[in-house]
Design a binder for these strands. Structure first.
Lengths: 370, 370
DNA sequence: CTGAAAGCGCTTACAG
DNA sequence: CTGAAAGCGCTTACAG
């Protein structure tokens, strides 16, 4: 292995067991190499390489013999040597904003599963919403020579994009406007998702609504695109009704989403009257639940709450959370197939817009007559 | 990059720009190499390598010149070539059972941060509790020639262990009994954690207690060690009191933790009487909350609940969940420092046992007199 | 402080 | 269907 400073002593400088070629004792990964299996199987390294990479041009018997030796020796090919020689990798880089948010965790898991189906492995990095780390993650991916990167972040560092663009590495973003010949985007229709969420509330009769956002970055930076879209959907829904009737407040609370949701509600409770809250994501809704319940308010009798994303948490809140589903599995398969298309050099595939859907549970109801 | 099937056309077979050595247009990652920067900086590749790896033997001016050229060219070293030549990597493999469980997600995040502090990058795999996938993950890590692996799983595949053992790759397990010259364990005192959790309940006056476990594997397999330990702690606590007084039930419900917790409670409600539930982890507690609340029971007035792990969720449940804290940050730093010690060849470090602590919130109370 | 040369362990035309 | 040879892009003694 790679760890011992001791120089490699096994090059049979003694010349004794030369003829036998018996590296059987050297089972530490990395110690036994394609040469060794070639010798034992009485073929050339090229042939071993052939069976390893499932080329069709190896006779079944030979193939089996090689496979046996590989198993017997516990041989693991050195991926660095093979990637170096091949000048390409079977790796897809995944960059997410926050692994602790189930939304991103589920995306990462789905992408990993999807990539594996196509023979790719996956390398994961999390940015914690810091543009700097996004850039560092891209560098890391480039050094790894990933075949493509799935940039599943809500924040967005221009430098990361230009690194990617400059490198020629295929990439697909989530809900973004960036593009390049080898860089695309898959979108979720968050605008419409927010539209139907608000419409749902309006139809129930709510007119005093609190929208809680959760920007992570400095207010200096431009708002997240996905927030903008949701804001638009929010406004569009309101405009179906008479704006005069409406009493709407928006709070943008930074920090970790659940705490932000909690703080936002605590603050809002002192300042505004509202019968419904729209949380920018489920975790924010979780925090909102907590603050509402701590204040002795009943959900949905006193206040309705709707979330966004349809993470696994929704089913387990009390009451279960009405939310907007963003199709994670679809998203993953779209991202991977776009990436593959770029990787194969098939040119720019069409950029999908995935639909969002209302999921009704029990956190919304008609507001109480007051 | 690696993706285009087009053969490399840039070896200046035209012989034109030979003298200039101007690969400036070739900014795609992987296209420009150490030779190129060496030429432009007017040094040898060895020198460039020296500055890249922060060897001390490069004159500051030379070093700066090289750095400038690197920046100018946007050069990213090919990690495969360097790992191959170096015969070691700066990679630590992390294997967890389930990224969707905040417990594991937090461990992964903490390990990643800790590893980075020491100049290592991290490669993450998730097993979904399948021993097969654990084994596959180990193979993957070995092929990557990671310097060490952090096996943070609750399930445990003997074959994965023997692969690791045979490979000589340093590894550290979480709460396990495996060991080898280069493989160790860091333990969390779950026995005592469970002990204090149950003691807390007993002191409050509870005597009818439901313990909910969540084994993931077939009942054919031996129970998880970490479950055994918790069971022992559970029993020890009970034995402080008169066993006759006790009315204890244990349900082991497979499947995803939150759903399992929910199903377990639903079933228990029909069969047993209990005033307190002990959940094997916070996510199970989340499901238990849901089922209890759906049944119209008040927490903690009707039923007390205690969780395990102290994940971020606890603060946001209603009421906030009393639980046992397992020290994730400590755990991560211990794991990494053990790994580093093995990697450096310092021999087997002492195996730490980290303490668990009771975290009192509001999900437990004296049982109602009935 | 710096460079020339060998080698890391594979893969890939190419020739048979 | 199989093998000999060159090459992938680095690092590391070693010599100066």
């Amino acid at each position: 292995m790679s760890t011992s400073p001791r120089p490699d002593a096994s090059n049979r400088s003694d010349g004794v067991s030369r003829a036998e070629g018996a590296p059987l004792q050297a089972r530490r990964a990395g110690r036994i190499k394609i040469q060794d299996v070639a010798r034992l199987a009485q073929v050339s390294p090229s042939t071993v390489s052939g069976v390893l990479n499932e080329k069709s041009n190896v006779r079944p018997e030979t193939r089996q013999r090689v496979l046996d030796v590989i198993a017997q020796l516990g041989y693991t090919p050195n991926i660095f040597a093979s990637n170096l020689a091949r000048r390409s990798t079977k790796l897809i880089g995944i960059i997410v904003s926050d692994l602790l948010n189930p939304f991103f965790a589920e995306i990462a898991a789905a992408l990993d599963a999807e990539a594996r189906k196509h023979g790719y492995e996956t390398f994961l990095a999390s940015t914690s919403f810091h543009p700097d780390k996004q850039c560092a993650a891209v560098r890391q991916m480039l050094a790894l020579r990933v075949a493509g990167v799935a940039m599943m972040t809500s924040e967005n560092d221009p430098e990361a994009f230009s690194l990617l663009k400059g490198s020629g590495t295929p990439a697909v973003y989530l809900d973004n406007n960036h593009s390049a010949p080898h860089i695309g985007t898959v979108r979720v229709d968050k605008r419409h998702g927010m539209f139907i969420a608000v419409q749902h509330l309006l139809e129930l009769g709510h007119r005093k609504i609190l929208l809680i956002k959760n920007s992570q970055q400095d207010s200096a930076e431009p708002p997240l695109l996905s927030h903008q879209e949701r804001q638009i959907g929010f406004d569009e829904a309101l405009h179906q009704y008479n704006p005069k009737e409406m009493d709407v407040h928006v709070i943008d609370e930074p920090g970790d989403p659940a705490s932000a949701g909690m703080r936002a509600v605590e603050r809002a409770l002192k300042q505004y009257r509202f019968t419904a809250v729209v949380a920018i994501n489920d975790l924010v809704a979780l925090g909102a639940f907590r603050a509402l319940q701590a204040a002795g308010l009943q959900i949905p009798q006193d206040v309705s709450v709707v979330g966004f994303d349809n993470t696994y948490l929704c089913d387990f809140l009390h009451p279960p959370l009405t939310t907007v589903a963003t199709p994670r599995a679809d998203l993953a398969s779209n991202v991977v197939s776009m990436l593959l298309s770029y990787i194969r050099g098939d040119g720019a595939p069409p950029e999908p817009m995935l639909p969002a859907q209302m999921v009704l549970r029990q956190s919304t109801a008609t507001p109480q007559a007051t």
